[in-house]
């Protein structure tokens, strides 16, 4: 269970990425987070495993306080939190297996992993993860020789190898074509259903979100503007989340009215 209370993030440059956000997520949920670029989606995922430190507030992930935690506690939380990236963040020059084994780093003493002497059980965990995403035949291929969709599956396998209880996916399909996007989203959905891993996915567009998500969180300029059932999303919520995309002057006034009404409604 994840409990985010009054969390704000201000970057060193002075940009406020999150403003006083409150969210509660139950175990096993599949949550889709939408919003424009710069709305704070990436920041929201990264405060959960401490890659971005929260400026204020409290975040409890499976009973552990993440905000202002020491590095050892953070590593503990991260080892149980898988993360998938928009740009895959694979090491292109090494094999798929080595990439997936990175997911086992927290379980293996540093000297062993540094020398590449991975224990048999960790190799087995990596192989199982590769089997689950269906690319075990690519185990010994260099990551750079895979297609974009395959690379993202390696990214998912790396996260699965951690045997996580929480999965964070930061725009996992933004760099993929529509067909591959559906496959990757399907993989994530299956992992959520079969393994019961709580899954948070950032998406740019609502159409994919509606297809795969149950619960929707909408962010705009670091403010939580929607949190609820994805099937109850109306045209109104659409505009609340994406209003700024239309930059003509007349819409600005309307947006502000809506923002106020959302504030009152909460």
């Amino acid at each position: 269970m994840i409990k985010i209370e009054r969390v704000s993030v201000t970057y060193p440059g002075g940009v406020e990425a999150l403003k006083n956000v409150d969210i509660e997520i139950e175990d096993g949920e599949f949550v889709v987070i939408v919003g424009l670029s710069g709305a704070g989606k990436s920041t929201l995922l990264r405060v959960l495993n401490g890659l971005v430190p929260a400026t204020s507030g409290s975040i409890i992930v499976d009973g552990t306080e993440v905000v202002k935690a020491n590095s050892q506690t953070l590593r503990q939380v991260r080892s149980k939190t898988g993360m998938i990236f928009q740009t895959f963040n694979l090491v292109n020059r090494t094999t798929v297996l080595n990439n997936v084994l990175m997911g086992r780093l927290a379980n293996v003493p540093s000297w062993r992993s540094t020398l590449g002497l991975w224990p048999a059980e960790d190799r087995e965990a990596a192989m199982l993860a590769l089997e689950r995403v269906g690319i075990v035949d690519k185990t010994y291929v260099r990551a750079s020789n895979l297609s974009g969709g395959q690379q993202q599956r390696v990214g998912i396998a790396r996260a699965l190898a951690q045997e996580p209880s929480l999965m964070l996916a930061d725009e996992p399909v933004a760099a993929l074509d529509p067909v591959t996007s559906r496959q990757v989203m399907g993989d994530l959905q299956k992992i959520n259903r079969e393994l019961g891993i709580t899954t948070l996915v950032n998406l740019h567009f609502l159409d994919l979100a509606k297809e795969y998500g149950k619960r929707l969180i909408g962010l705009r300029d670091g403010v939580l503007v929607y949190d609820g059932d994805i099937n109850k999303v109306t045209d109104e919520t659409f505009r609340e989340i994406y209003g700024r995309a239309i930059t003509s002057e007349d819409l600005h006034a309307m947006n502000e009215e809506q923002q106020q009404s959302v504030g009152n409604g909460k």
Binding site: E131, R132, G134, V136, D137, T139, Y140, E194
Partner: peptide, 15 residues
Amino acid sequence: MNDSTKTSERPVKPK
């Protein structure tokens, strides 16, 4: 585990 994902055998580690 879903059987549809098991599309292929584990490859042998290349020497």
